[in-house]
Design a protein around this nucleic acid. Structure first.
Lengths: 205, 205
DNA sequence: TATGGGAATGAATGATCGTTCATTCTGAGT
DNA sequence: ACTCAGAATGAACGATCATTCATTCCCATA
């Protein structure tokens, strides 16, 4: 076994390295049984390093959640706002592909996501971190649906309600993929979500 | 302060008492930071009692999950199978009322539910406990939908897919009610679920 | 009323884990 | 080549917590 050599790297890189190790540890062992020893070992670093870059374990966990939340909601918002050139139907399809695509439905990401949701009821800090980006994503989704309803002349369609329903459905599908992967495939999950959108906006998807 | 008197009670009653205390503690402090001291104190009993009735903390947590899962899925199955006399439309409405009604949407119950889901990715034992009753409930739901599809002559409707979608939607709504209660009311959640069912079975609800 | 089986107690134990900080080591700047 | 600011290390400490078990106490039974 080659002895690993100590290396000095910029702060930002070490922070990212530790956050990624934390994600892997949460996915493998759960948020409840994670230890600093695990995380730093997973990162290939020493115990004390965590104290250097994040003051406490609690802080490391908060920053990890923030990172995952921003990645998810950021990706979502980018699709909805970024491709202003693309048509509404295309944006809808891209959104669905993103939310149930390779990047997001990795066990690792979903496990982290729900590990935090599980503690959110008891830890307002987690709620706060998520709700910041969550609210923004919800508003963007609502605005996309508003445009679609106008373009498609869908009568009696309430964009806020459809957006809440759609978001809930996606969350529920992620949960099913995480907890009972043998009962549902990604293909089925996509079909179900597409069906929901099709019933709401039949002329767009 | 009146000194509490030691009392001897049947095993089953103590077990229930401890499980209920565990549920309250999980809802208040989270599955991650629960201690035996908390639970036994919440139950108004002594530390050692937990070892007497459940061998270990781990076992107490497993039994608590089993209890919550059975209460939820059991209630669901009772509605779908119990009222064989009632019409299909009534059963559908009862199911919805139960799943988003007072009993189930208490913060306490939902918090426990998602606390375990959060750890399920890393703890196969939890998955196993839930999937036992979950699978049964899913099959019963599917069979109800099959009957409704036949009665309503809904063409091209896949009962298994609609059942998975509906279950996911309900889970997602519970999650939203737990994590962002300010963004969604129980009334809205019911409307969203009802809408989903209405689009699938317009002549039944 | 007397008594034994076993339910209930909680101080003590040992293990685990977060955090600290004296020390070592690196590499950019001179 | 030399230097030193500060990045990185990990042994040690103290706090927390699950678990144990010797002891106390209740109450059904006789």
């Amino acid at each position: 076994m080659p002895k690993k050599k100590r290396q000095i790297l910029p702060k930002e890189q070490r922070r990212q390295q530790l956050i990624e190790a934390t994600i892997r540890c949460i996915a493998r062992d759960g948020l409840g049984s994670i230890t600093m020893h695990m995380v730093t070992q997973e990162a290939g670093l020493s115990l004390g390093i965590a104290n250097l870059h994040f003051k406490t374990k609690d802080n490391l966990l908060k920053e990890t959640l923030r990172s995952v939340a921003e990645e998810y909601h950021g990706g979502q918002i980018a699709i909805m706002e970024g491709h202003r050139t693309a048509g509404l139907a295309d944006r809808l399809a891209s959104l669905l592909a993103f939310q149930l695509g390779r990047g997001v439905t990795q066990r690792q990401k979903m496990a982290v996501w729900f590990a935090y949701y599980g503690e959110a009821g008891a830890r307002p800090v987690y709620q706060k971190i998520v709700s910041a980006s969550d609210r923004m994503a919800a508003l963007t989704l609502e605005s996309l649906f508003t445009d679609i309803i106008e373009e498609g002349q869908y009568k009696d369609a309430n964009p806020a309600e459809i957006a809440m329903g759609y978001s809930a459905l996606i969350d529920g599908l992620h949960l099913a993929l995480l907890v009972t992967p043998r009962e549902i495939s990604k293909r089925q999950a996509k079909a179900i979500a597409r069906n929901f959108l099709h019933r709401a906006f039949p002329r767009h998807i």
